[in-house]
Design a protein around this nucleic acid. Structure first.
Lengths: 219, 219
DNA sequence: CTGCATCCGCCTCGATACTG
DNA sequence: CAGTATCGAGGCGGATGCAG
């Protein structure tokens, strides 16, 4: 006995979007997949509080609606993974926009708040202002609690990529909590550096260019 | 006995945003207020299906979170209105982004789908590509089922404004259903014109410039 | 009439247990 | 590892009540 899905029943783009991605947990699943393809149990681990039945149901709907697809297990690893389709990937911009909006409003984390280094990667992507990258041709490497990724700025186009950079002009090492604090505007990079919670290595000018790209410094 | 609000409990911008605007109906309330300040019963009328208690509860939370504020009744009209604060207004970009995403996926409306001319105004705003307005200095007037608004393009900055335009180079008249069909890409402006569902008056070149601005024509 | 508050039935959600 | 099954609690939808 299948039940029909709840719908707003409005002939409007936003209502149509929310019919698909408006239910609880759905956009957070999209967030995880925006960072990269995931296995079922990875999603479960990075979405503390979601019921396993609910995750399964959401994945089923998202696949039926064409936002995600299953990467079948290949020869070496017999593990099924989920990944965004182009249609799902097209949500990146608006979702990052919402993340940027929410980042600026974040309060200090309560005791029970979950913190994951991978979310810092999305925070970086949300903070980037590509208009400030017109003259850049370099990359910055981040190590957040051991999770390593880098930002590649190439003449106006900026990408955030998992893994270490080739020849970064800057490496930054910190913990997820501190990084999100900085992104939320509640801690200054200077303060984090002075208290040794943030350690940056590289040319001073490169550090400033990186901070400007992330909206952490004027200019 | 007040109940604590449900939260994802994640120290992440997106999760923080969804704690505030992720509940059912909330983003649609924001949509209505993005179009313009509204009275309680206007919201109720344009959100068919919402419970009156739920609307009241959402408005209360949105006010407490600083996204909306109450415009007190002034002398001539003793009617209370709700309007977005700057914080709420800051959601315009990501919300329009989601609307654009959803607009492209809209199926033909089912029998029971609600259609409101005011939503066409938001659809226009979502469709606009400001990068194509660099050389424009003119305005286009729309009449959707009697709801009149206009688009003002001024050298790269484009605004959608309620009410008639001053000296529009183009006036377009149609019904909400047809307009959303065009926005969703399921009907061509040409087809709508030939079937008399869309009537445009103005210079042929102006019509083409307007279509390009809305992503309805290449170039 | 507007702007809510209260009540109730149902559906969704969250947690745990269980299976291939 | 990757889900399915089950069940209690709470959020939602609709009707109704009521004060200004």
């Amino acid at each position: 006995m299948e039940h029909e899905r709840r719908s707003y029943g409005q002939y409007c783009g936003l209502a149509g979007a929310l019919d698909v991605i408006g239910e609880r947990w759905t956009l957070l699943i999209i967030r995880e997949l925006l960072i990269g393809p995931c296995r079922y149990n990875e999603l479960l681990a990075n979405l503390p509080g979601i019921g396993t039945n609910l995750l399964a149901a959401r994945l089923k709907y998202l696949a039926k609606d064409g936002l995600i697809e299953v990467v079948p297990p290949d020869q070496n690893s017999k593990i099924k993974r989920y990944r965004l389709t182009d249609e799902g990937e097209a949500l990146r911009e608006p979702v990052l926009g919402m993340a940027r909006w929410g980042l600026g409003r974040l309060d200090a984390p309560e005791v029970e708040e979950a913190v994951r280094p991978r979310w810092a990667m999305l925070a970086v992507e949300a903070m980037i202002d590509e208009r400030r990258a017109a003259d850049l041709d370099e990359s910055y490497e981040f190590d957040i609690d051991g999770e390593v990724f880098h930002v590649e700025a190439r003449y106006g186009k900026v990408k955030v990529i998992p893994g270490p950079a080739n020849q970064p002009v800057l490496t930054a090492q910190t913990d997820a909590r501190t990084f999100v604090d900085i992104g939320a505007g509640r801690m200054d990079p200077l303060e984090a550096t002075l208290t040794k919670r943030l350690v940056m290595e590289g040319d001073i000018e490169a550090i400033l260019r990186c901070c400007r790209l992330l909206g952490l410094a004027p200019g």
